[in-house]
Write a protein that binds this DNA or RNA. Structure first.
Length: 573
DNA sequence: CGCTTTTGACCAGCGC
DNA sequence: GCGCTGGTCAAAAGCG
């Protein structure tokens, strides 16, 4: 994060500059350092309250843990407010100032008294150097804290996304979100008013906002349609939605990768452009943006499951627009696009596994730009959340395995070491593997009882069902999540991310979730889903339940720096 | 008649 | 530069 690193670096540079001159050092310590720190921390605090509060918490926690300066201890009981945080920092620095001032006093005395007392000056110099050393250490600690705060902040982002995806699904777990602060609370309030819309605008990839037009799709008819699409979106998206989007972007940090949906018709047709380099709305860092562009072309969510049906029922209406024979697979790959709204950029590919043709592989890409029925909402939430988590660790980096572990621990905590990394996928892909059902016979339900069935022309099984609340489904994990992120060097989660995620998990976990019952639930639900042709909807609900509420399984974490989504509309036939 | 599906062609990216 | 591959377009056909 540029903002954060810049802030931490500012303090360090200030200290280094101070080291350059012994003569002015003390005065600078008195005058400049507190100012620098104050400025730095103020900037680092960012423009949103949540970030500031998070920092506040971490500063306090860290200082308490290590028994830092008394001034810091003074601020421990401070409430979560920016002013007090600033006061904390300033107080700490005043402590240093006081010390140095004391030293200076001594030096001044020495200078006025003697030029012959070199020993005293040397001692003082050593003391000052020690002081500087301590300050440097402090600076390092602050940096570390900053990283931690950043990670936690990302976790909050993700939770925020989940909350907006399913505002009605959150339960008492909100009580554990005290540290989420007013920013989040505001969003919750907005959620209350957003009954339907919120999540559809969450992008699967950061490029959603401003996908470039494909040369192909830039024809006048497409432009006209694009305008109508924009109008449609404006109609659909209430002001509340926009406000939430705005707030979300603020929380995200204003990098524009949050709600990537573009509202302006000038974006032209928003084709689903797999081969086009997506644009990002307004990434502050060009380098970062380029890196994102280079790596995050598409975030995809692939669902593998055994199904006899030609296509899984996920609550959306799809229209087939192409079919190709993919290399290495005798089964053709079908291409579908969402037809629930004009210009909806969501596509999916359906293909049977070459090895086991009973396995149906459905790959989703993009995000719906229209309200969705509960059934479709569940699946959309799943894809969006999964993809968001996939991309969530892209800011910091270590390695892909870490990210895999991160995802596993955050999304599928009850799945044991089933996360894998594939370096072969052309796009960052989250794969939800439902083919390893522990016991499909444990919990079978007739398809007609499947929830989230909705109008679905392609699959008769999807018709006639009565949508129910997604949250009513049990949480379904125990399956495999694999992450493919070749050409995705930036997509990693750091150890700090993971630590923060774990901490966040613990924080959110109300009371130790009964693992046995959870396992039973998981087994049963998994079996049901796997046996059910409409399993994806249930899966979606489960994922959403976990992510959105951090429910009894107590796991919702993850740094969510962005939402991915290739939201480019394209012309709909 | 309107919508969906089929299917061959076209285009762009990538590797050699 | 060429060929391969994935993805999309769009005309034609099918269906209710």
């Amino acid at each position: 994060m540029d903002k954060n690193s810049g802030g931490g670096g500012g303090g360090g540079l200030s200290l280094d500059a101070t080291l350059a001159s012994q003569t002015h050092k003390r005065k600078q310590q008195q005058q400049q350092q507190p100012m620098d720190f104050g400025f730095t921390l103020s900037c680092r605090g960012g423009n949103n309250d949540s970030e500031r509060v998070a920092e506040m918490d971490f500063f306090s926690a860290e200082k308490k843990a290590r028994g830092a300066a008394p001034a810091a201890d003074k601020v421990q009981p401070a409430s979560l407010s920016i002013k007090k945080e600033d006061f904390t920092i300033n107080t700490g620095l005043r402590l240093l100032t006081t010390n140095t001032g004391s030293d200076q006093s001594t030096v001044d005395d020495g200078l006025s008294r003697n030029d012959d007392d070199d020993k005293e000056n040397k001692n003082e110099l050593a003391a000052i150097q020690a002081e500087l050393s301590r300050m440097n250490e402090e600076n390092q600690r602050l940096r570390g804290t900053l990283n931690q705060v950043t990670s936690n902040y990302n976790s909050l982002q993700m939770h925020l996304v989940a909350l907006m995806q399913h505002p009605n699904q959150r339960t008492g777990n909100e009580a554990a979100d005290v540290d989420v602060d007013d920013e989040k609370m505001d969003v919750k309030q907005h959620d209350g008013g957003l009954a339907i819309v919120p999540r559809q605008f969450m992008g699967l990839s950061p490029d959603e906002p401003s996908n470039t037009l494909s040369d192909r799709s830039s024809s006048p008819p497409n432009n006209v349609e694009s305008s109508s699409t924009a109008d449609y979106r404006l109609q659909k998206s209430s002001s509340n939605v926009k406000e939430v989007e705005h707030r979300y972007n603020s929380v995200v940090g204003g990098d524009g990768r949050g709600f990537a949906r573009e509202d302006s018709p000038d974006q032209g047709s928003q084709g689903w452009l797999p081969n086009k380099q997506p644009k990002f709305l307004d990434s502050k860092s060009p380098d970062h943006q380029q890196a994102q562009e280079a790596t995050m072309r598409k975030a995809r969510v692939s669902v593998r499951a055994r199904s006899e049906a030609p296509m899984i029922t996920d609550g959306c209406q799809w229209r087939k627009y192409g079919q190709k024979m993919a290399k290495g697979n005798p089964c053709p790959r079908a291409y579908y696009r969402c037809t629930m709204a004009t210009g909806c950029p969501v596509r999916k590919q359906v293909q049977r596994c070459a090895d086991d043709r009973t396995i149906l592989i459905t790959t989703y890409e993009g995000n719906h730009n229209h309200p969705l029925p509960p059934a479709a909402m569940a699946m959309a939430s799943t894809t969006s959340a999964a993809a968001s988590m996939l991309l969530s660790g892209s800011m910091s980096s270590t390695d892909g395995l870490m990210n895999s572990n991160f995802l596993t621990r955050t999304m599928l905590p009850c799945s044991s070491s089933m996360a894998t990394i594939s370096a072969s996928a052309p796009f960052p892909t989250v794969t939800l593997d439902l083919t390893h059902s522990p016991s499909p016979l444990q919990f079978q339900r007739p398809p007609q009882h499947t929830q989230f069935q909705l109008n679905f022309p392609n699959g008769g099984a999807g018709l006639g069902g009565v949508p129910t609340q997604p949250s009513s489904l049990p949480q379904v994990f125990g399956q495999t999540l694999s992450v493919s992120q070749s050409k995705f060097s930036g997509l990693h989660a750091s150890a700090a991310d993971i630590d923060a995620a774990v901490q966040f998990q613990h924080a959110k976990m109300p009371m130790g979730a009964p693992s046995s019952s959870l396992a039973d639930t998981v087994s049963a639900a998994t079996a049901a889903i796997t046996a059910d042709p409409n399993f994806t909807a249930a899966l979606a609900a489960a994922i959403t339940s976990i992510i959105g509420s951090g429910g009894s399984s107590g796991n919702q974490t993850g740094s969510m720096n962005n939402n991915n989504n290739s939201n480019s509309s394209n012309k709909t036939n």
